[in-house]
């Protein structure tokens, strides 16, 4: 079967006839809808919602950045009695949890680290 003719046939099947131009009622209907929808909006400022959101983001961004910086500084400089030993607890926790005891011991040995201390063993 000829594919070109076939495609033409499908195209004709899927096509619609020409549309008559839009009437004035069509455009009036749009304005009517716009008025209705505008009236049903809870606030007058609804149309500018994206702008409001953007402004709000810009206003709160410095505050959020300052808070984040504060948390980071605190985490870094806080004395050990507050946050505990910096690395050892985490290291041993992760290794001990992830590996069977024999493998963990081997890992400590390979990396030349004292179990639970998080510090390098002295040679």
């Amino acid at each position: 079967m000829n594919p070109t003719r076939w495609n033409e046939w499908v195209r004709r099947q899927l096509q619609t006839g020409p549309l008559e131009p839009a009437s004035e009622e069509f455009f009036e209907g749009i304005w009517e809808r716009i008025r209705e929808q505008a009236a049903s909006l809870p606030m007058q400022g609804r149309r500018t919602f994206p702008e409001d959101l953007r402004t709000a983001c810009w206003q709160t961004a410095p505050l959020l950045a300052a808070a984040l910086l504060g948390i980071l500084l605190y985490a870094w400089y806080a004395p050990p009695e507050i946050h505990g030993p910096r690395t050892s607890a985490m290291d041993s926790y992760v290794w001990d949890a992830a590996l069977p005891p024999s493998d963990a011991a081997l890992m400590y040995q390979i990396l030349n680290v004292e179990p639970g201390s998080g510090t390098e063993a002295q040679p």
Binding site: T16, L19, A22, F26, I30, R33, I34, Q37
Partner: peptide, 22 residues
Amino acid sequence: RNRAMVDDLAQETFAKAYFGLK
């Protein structure tokens, strides 16, 4: 193919465009 539906959907399209143009 229903012309009334076509106009109805087109009107709704423009109404949405009006509120979303920004």
